[in-house]
C-alpha cells in the first residue's frame, strides 16, 4: 500500500495554520535581516574602536576645563597619559615627574576665539598629593617670575603660568606673550582652579619658613622629592640658596617622622658623603650637637639633626663658613620650631 502525501486536500483551517507558520517564518526572516545590519559590539570594536585606541593615548570625551572661558575654543581633544606613557608626551622631562610620584597627565590645547593662531596648552599633572605637586613646582620655578594669587602657589614667567592646586601641578603654556593671550591663559588657570575641587592643599610654608631669613636668595626654596644630592636614600628635602658675602651656599632641612629617624638620616647622609663621595670628616663642632663637617674635595658639607629635623649645609666654599651657617640654621630651627 503506497501512501501518497497528495492523497488529501487540506481544509481551510489547516491551510490557515500552515499560512500562520509561513508568516511566522517571514517575521523571523525580517527580524534576522534587521538584526544583521546592526553590528555586534565585537565587530564594531574590532573594526572601529580598535583603530581609535591603538597606541596608548586614550581620548577623553570631556574637555579638561568646563565651562571654558569665553575667549577660548577647544582645539584638540583632551589627552591622558599614565606614568608609563608620560614620555610619549613630554619625552625626557618625564623623569622629573616620575621621580616625584606622578600619577598621570592630562592635557588639552585651546585656541583664542578672536585670534585662532594663538593657542594655549593646559597641562594637568596629577601628582597624587600636594607635597609632590609642590615639589615639582618648586624644583622648576623660573628665576624671573611674577607671583600670582590664583591658587595655593602660582606664578607667571613670560608665556607660562605654573601653579599648584591641591595634588595637581598645572602648567598653562601660551604660544606668545601678547596681552590677550596672557589674559586668556590667566582666565583658563582661574577657570581650572574654580572647576576642580580638591580636598587637600599643599601646606609647606611652615617648614620652609624655618630657614634663616637673612641671606636667603628669594624664590630659591625648593622641595626635592628624590635622589637629593645624588643620594638615593634621601627624599623630601627643602633646599634653599643663601648669599654669604660674595659666596653662595645651600642650606637644607627635612622633617622626618621622629628624632630617631632624623638621627638615622643624618648618619646615612654623612655615610654617603664620606663613603660614596670620597669626603673626609674634618670636624665635629660642639654646636649644633652631633654635627659633622665633611671636606668633599674643595667644598664642604655639614650635617646634623635636631628633633625630627635633618638639616645641614651643602657645598659651602669654606669650613669656617660651614660651621657658621650650621649654627645659624640650628638657631633658626630652635627659634622658629
Amino acid at each position: 500500500m503506497a501512501i501518497s502525501p497528495s492523497s488529501r486536500l487540506p481544509s481551510a483551517r489547516e491551510s490557515a495554520a500552515a499560512a500562520t507558520v509561513c508568516l511566522a517564518l517571514c517575521a523571523v526572516l525580517a527580524w534576522l535581516a534587521h538584526t544583521q545590519s546592526r553590528f555586534s559590539p565585537a565587530v564594531d570594536i574590532a573594526f572601529h574602536e580598535a583603530k581609535a585606541t591603538a597606541g596608548t593615548v586614550h581620548a577623553q570625551a570631556q574637555d579638561l576645563v568646563s565651562p571654558l572661558p569665553a575667549a577660548l575654543r577647544p582645539m584638540s581633544a583632551a589627552e591622558a597619559f599614565a606614568p608609563e606613557t608620560l614620555s610619549d608626551k613630554i619625552d625626557g622631562k618625564a623623569e622629573v615627574y616620575l621621580s616625584a610620584g606622578v600619577a598621570g597627565l592630562r592635557c588639552q590645547r585651546m585656541a583664542l576665539a578672536a585670534a585662532p593662531a594663538s593657542w594655549i596648552e593646559l597641562f594637568v599633572f596629577d601628582m597624587g598629593k600636594p607635597s609632590n605637586a609642590y615639589s615639582v613646582y618648586s624644583s622648576q620655578r623660573r628665576s624671573d617670575v611674577t607671583d600670582l594669587q590664583l591658587a595655593d602657589y602660582a606664578y607667571r614667567a613670560g608665556n607660562e603660568i605654573a601653579l599648584v592646586h591641591g595634588p595637581f601641578y598645572v602648567e598653562v603654556v601660551a604660544t606668545d606673550e601678547g596681552p590677550a593671550t596672557i589674559e586668556a591663559a590667566s582666565a583658563l588657570a582661574r577657570a581650572y582652579v574654580a572647576a576642580t575641587p580638591v580636598s587637600a592643599h599643599a601646606d609647606v610654608s611652615s617648614d620652609q619658613a624655618l630657614f634663616p631669613r637673612e641671606g636667603l636668595v628669594p624664590g630659591s626654596v625648593t622641595l626635592l622629592s628624590t635622589d637629593v644630592f645624588g643620594f638615593d636614600g634621601l627624599g623630601n628635602v627643602y633646599v634653599a640658596r643663601f648669599r654669604d658675602g660674595k659666596d653662595e651656599l645651600t642650606l637644607f632641612l627635612a622633617r622626618r617622622t621622629g628624632a630617631r629617624d632624623a638621627t638615622a638620616a643624618a648618619a646615612a647622609l654623612r655615610g654617603f658623603f664620606v663613603d660614596d663621595c670620597g669626603g673626609k670628616e674634618v670636624a665635629r663642632p660642639a654646636l649644633p650637637a652631633g654635627a659633622v663637617i665633611i671636606d668633599a674635595g674643595g667644598s664642604f658639607e655639614g650635617v646634623f639633626s635636631t628633633g625630627a629635623f635633618l638639616a645641614g649645609v651643602h657645598q659651602a666654599p669654606s669650613r669656617e663658613g660651614t660651621d657658621r651657617w650650621l649654627k645659624r640654621l640650628s638657631a633658626s630651627l630652635a627659634e622658629k620650631r
Binding site: P5, P10, A18, A19, C22, V28
Partner: peptide, 28 residues
C-alpha cells in the same frame, strides 16, 4: 497548504538559517 508542507518549509528555513549563522561567524 498542508501543515506538513509548512513543517518542511520551516525545517528547511531553520536549518538553512543555522548553517548560515555558522558560515558567517567570522569577525568582519
Amino acid at each position: 497548504m498542508k501543515i506538513t508542507t509548512a513543517r518542511r518549509v520551516a525545517q528547511i528555513f531553520f536549518l538553512t538559517t543555522f548553517l548560515w549563522l555558522a558560515v558567517v561567524a567570522t569577525v568582519g
